[in-house]
């Protein structure tokens, strides 16, 4: 008797195929359309094949400024990444000990994952309006010139924007650190202590090197969550835009495939970042293994 695949195989294969189509179909479509010929439109069919739209993008020929937004998003994502890693590690260490209110603090931290992003963004913007009013009132009453003349708003990518992004990245970072420390055997730290290491030496020479591979994961998470965040950014960046906001604006105003070129370029950037990260990790592991 020949081996026959059960019917469930075909059902599951269909589900998997659909999954692939939905996951990669859009990306491939955008990728292909970004090489649209100069006369081509926003939709298929392709009218020739060219890098015309990439050139337009590079020359800044489009209506809205892209370079500034890209740089701003990149620096913001870097800052978010560093803060997310640092705070998550420290919080993860704190949660290993039981302290009063630990559970409540955890729920408070995780809650911002449940609150709709746009609401968080609006709320932060409202808070900063209050802060602005307070600063202006203070400037007037204390007679500080630059506040009276030049101050517009405390809203900005590295104040309210940074805060908004951290409400998104920190809960993720914290949850990853929970998983990491759950599996971390405290015997390693006891052994270090037994061998005369101070608490700082124990952290520096034992705990940190052992969790380092996971921290790269937290860093990538922090960076990419910030890099492509739109909803939380929407109300809090003040007069400046991040890249996703610029892209969103473009989709409503732009009627040519330059938007696809931009999409391809930024996706390429993300892919490059992930590749660099994995190369780093595997290099670290190889160096470790090479000692043998």
């Amino acid at each position: 008797m020949t081996e026959r695949r059960p019917r469930s195989f075909y059902v599951l294969a269909l589900v998997f195929a659909l999954f692939l189509v939905f996951l990669y179909g859009p990306m491939i479509s955008v990728l292909v359309l970004s090489f649209q010929g100069p006369e081509g439109g926003l939709v298929f069919p392709m009218t020739g094949f060219s890098t015309h739209w990439f050139q337009r993008l590079w020359e800044g020929g489009g209506q809205v400024e892209i370079g500034g937004a890209l740089r701003r998003s990149f620096v913001l994502a870097l800052v978010v990444m560093v803060l997310t890693v640092t705070i998550s590690v420290l919080a993860g260490l704190a949660f290993r000990r039981t302290f009063r209110g630990a559970t409540i603090l955890l729920y408070v931290a995780i809650a911002s994952l449940i609150v709709p992003s746009i609401v968080v963004s609006l709320g932060i913007a409202l808070e900063f309006r209050l802060l602005d009013d307070a600063i202006k009132a203070f400037g007037t009453s204390a007679g500080i010139d630059w506040i009276q003349n030049d101050f517009v708003s405390a809203l900005g990518p590295f104040t309210s924007g940074l805060g908004a992004h951290l409400t998104w990245t920190l809960p993720f970072g914290l949850l990853i650190m929970f998983a990491v420390f759950n599996r971390f055997d405290p015997a390693y730290e006891e052994a270090a202590r037994d061998l005369g290491a101070t608490p700082w030496q124990t952290f520096r020479h034992v705990t940190l090197p052992m969790i380092a591979p996971f921290l790269i994961g937290v860093a990538v998470f922090g960076f990419t969550l910030s890099w492509d965040e739109l909803a939380r950014s929407s109300q809090v960046m003040g007069s400046q835009n991040t890249l996703p906001m610029q892209l969103a604006a473009k989709t409503t105003t732009v009627t040519d495939p330059e938007i696809y070129a931009l999409g391809t370029a930024t996706t390429g950037g993300s892919v490059l970042l992930v590749l660099i990260t994995f190369t780093l990790i595997s290099l670290m592991q190889r160096r470790r293994a090479k000692r043998g």
Partner: peptide
């Protein structure tokens, strides 16, 4: 005193020599 742990708790990121010399490095 010095303790030998049940699962040995050898530091996985250090070589054998570095593990053994750990207490000296701390000093």
């Amino acid at each position: 005193t010095a303790m030998m742990f049940q699962n040995y708790a050898l530091f996985p990121h250090l070589s054998v020599a570095e593990n053994v010399a750990f207490s000296l490095r701390m000093k």
